Amino acid sequence: MEIKNVQIPFTLFRQLVSYHLLDDYSCSDEICKGLEEKMDHLVNRQLYTQSKTAATEEEREKARKEYLDKKGISENFRW
């Protein structure tokens, strides 16, 4: 698997530095929230990419449905 770079907001980076290097645990809730949001964005992007580039039509359709479910798009508004 190819290792890729991930960008995070500067404020989250600063909070991570404070937490790990300065032992400032006051922002642990914000760090958890920021990392969860980033993971959600990464998963959504991966599903979207799979919905466009998967090898078979079945895989593309499965990824498309999962992506739309995660985004909260109701069945009535799907094509």
Rank of each mutant, 00 (worst) to 15 (best):
C27L: 10
A54Q: 02
L12Q: 04
K33D: 12
T56P: 01
Y25L: 11
L22W: 11
W79M: 12
F77N: 15
Y25C: 12
T56R: 02
H41P: 01
R14L: 03
I31V: 07
L21R: 12
Q7K: 11
F10T: 12
D40T: 02
I8K: 11
F77W: 14
E75K: 13
S74R: 05
S26C: 08
M1P: 08
E61R: 08
S74V: 09
A55R: 13
S26R: 03
D23N: 13
L42R: 01
D24H: 14
F13Q: 13
R78K: 15
D29E: 15
W79C: 10
N5H: 12
G34R: 03
P9G: 07
I8T: 09
D40I: 00
D40F: 05
E2N: 15
E2F: 11
F10I: 13
R64K: 12
L47V: 03
F13Y: 15
L35R: 01
S51R: 01
E57I: 13
R78Q: 15
R45V: 01
D69H: 10
T49Q: 10
R64H: 07
Q50T: 02
K52P: 01
K62V: 07
E75Q: 11
R64T: 00
K33I: 02
K38S: 00
K70E: 13
C32A: 15
G34I: 05
Q50N: 15
Y19G: 02
Y19D: 01
R78D: 13
V43M: 12
F13K: 14
W79H: 15
C32P: 05
E66F: 02
A55C: 08
K65H: 07
K52E: 14
F10L: 13
E37V: 07
L21F: 15
N44R: 03
K70C: 11
H20Y: 14
F77I: 10
R64E: 00
C32E: 13
V17M: 11
Y25R: 14
E58S: 10
T56M: 03
L12V: 08
F10A: 09
K4G: 07
I3H: 14
L12S: 08
K38Q: 11
Y19K: 06
F10H: 09
F13I: 03
R14G: 03
N5Q: 15
H41I: 05
T49H: 07
